[in-house]
């Protein structure tokens, strides 16, 4: 089985040893994209969120082999201009404490800024329900993301 992904705009052929492993493992251990964090490893915390064809998913629950031909975007692949805006908003509102949830939040923020939603008029709190912050800085995160919209 041959599996090729486009990760952050770059084509990469997945070695056979990673086809039956999680996308998270492939991104971190093989490609060195350590901005993708493993929190819970069961899809609850959202620290491992990446965009698959522009839609947020948990990379800890995806097997690399099912993603042949797909476009994957991690925090490392977000545009510099966006990351500068995101950092500035986080600094202004105090939206980063320990920082472990931040890469997943950044990916969600990029998705939101690109018009991401499930149905119309969903509040950010609903769309961010899959990203846990154990420093419980939600209010500041919501404020920072609202300012980015």
């Amino acid at each position: 089985m041959q599996v090729t992904l486009r990760v952050n705009g770059k084509l990469s052929e997945v070695p056979p040893s990673f086809i039956g492993r999680r996308l998270l493992d492939y991104l971190r251990a093989e490609l060195g994209l350590t901005g993708v964090k493993e929190g819970c490893g069961e899809g609850d915390c959202g620290a491992c969120t990446v965009l698959v064809e522009g839609q947020p998913m948990c990379s800890c629950l995806l097997l690399t082999g099912v993603l042949d031909g797909r476009e994957i975007t991690t925090i490392e692949g977000l545009p510099e201009t966006f990351l500068a805006q995101f950092s500035a908003a986080c600094a202004e509102y105090g939206a980063v404490q320990c920082g472990y949830c931040t890469p997943g939040i950044a990916v969600m923020a990029a998705w939101l800024q690109a018009g991401g939603s499930e149905v119309s008029a969903q509040p950010i709190t609903k769309l961010l329900e899959g990203n846990l912050c154990r420093c419980t800085g939600y209010q500041q995160i919501i404020e920072a993301l609202s300012a980015l919209q």
Binding site: G46, M57, C58
Partner: peptide, 12 residues
């Protein structure tokens, strides 16, 4: 369907 898991999980 709208209350299962989270945005990320519903995409999968």
């Amino acid at each position: 369907a709208a209350v299962v898991g989270s945005v990320q999980l519903r995409n999968q």
